[in-house]
Amino acid sequence: MIEVEHLTKRYGLLAAIEDVSFQVRQGEILGFLGPNGAGKTTTMRILAGFFPATEGRAVVAGYDVFEHPLEAKSRVGYLPESPPLYTEMTVDSYLRFVATIKGVAGAETPDRMEIVKDRCGLAGQGERLIKHLSKGYRQRVGLAQALIHDPDVLILDEPTIGLDPRQIIEFRELIGSLRGEHTIILSTHILPEVSMTCDRVIIISRGRIVAVDSPRNLTSRMQGGEQIDLTVGGDGSRVNELLGGLPHVTRVAVEEAGNGLSSVLVEADGQAEVRHAVARQVIRGGLDLYELKVRSVSLEDVFVELTTEEETSEGTFREGEDPDREGEAAS
C-alpha cells in the first residue's frame, strides 16, 4: 500500500531524513517512533504530498506521490501534528469544505459526514463552532477531516499529543477500530502507544531508520534471554546453590532486601521457559516464595538503546533476514 525507497530530504545542507526505505502492507498499522526532530514529521509530510523529497521515491496506494500528486493525495487522509482547523467554522461546514476539496461527490457528502462524525464521537456537535471545542474534540475533528473521503491510507502525526489520559485511551480505541479498513501510519514518541496499537514499528533517529519490526520481536531480540525477578523469604544464601544448577539458568544474583527477604535475579539462556522450574525449586528448598515475575524488556529500553547507541553500533537491525519470522509474529 505504501512503498518508500531511499527517501532523502535536505534543508540546505542539513538532512532531515536520509535514505529512508520501508513498506507498509494493506490494512497494517505502522508506528513511527523517534525522538523529537528525528524526521518523523518530514517523512509523513512527504508521504502526504505536502512537500517533495530531495531524492527517492514514495508510492502511496499505487500512485507515485511526486509524479501523480493529485491521485495520490485523494487516497490519503492526513492529520498533521496540530489539526488544520478553520476555527471560525462550525464542525459541519468545515467537514463539508474538506469533503469538497478532497473530491467527495456532492451527493455522498452528507452521508460521509454522518459516518465520520459518528465514528469520531462528534455526533450532535455539528453545529458547534470549532473555536468553542476543547482540545480533545478538536483532535477528533482533525481525525474526522482525515477520514472524510474514506482514504486507503491514513497518516497521523502524533495524534494523541496534548490530550488528557482518558482522551488518549479513547483515541487509541478509535484508531484500533479503524484497523483493517485503512492502512495507517502513525507517529509518536509515546512508547506504550506503539506497543498497544501498532502491528509494526519503525524506529527512526537522526533521520535514519534504525529498526523495523513488530513490537514483540523488537523487545525479544533485545532481551537475548529471559530474566526473572524473585522475592524469597528464608535463608538467602541457599538460593544460589538451589537455582544455579537448573538447566538453562546462566546466572543467579542475590541481594538482601531486609525483613528476612532476598531479591533474586535469575537469567536463562535463549527463549527457554524456566519459571516453573525456578518456582518449584524454591519451594522444595524450603524457602518462601513471595513474588515471581518475568522482567520484560520494554519497548522503551529498545528505543533508548537504539537511539543513543546508534552512533557506535556496527549495523542497524532490520527485518528481512528471515521474512517468515514476521508472519509468525503477526499470527
Binding site: G49, P80, P83
Partner: peptide, 12 residues
Amino acid sequence: RGTVELLFTSPL
C-alpha cells in the same frame, strides 16, 4: 494556523 497542510495535502 497550519491549515496550509490541509490545502497542500488535498487534491487541489
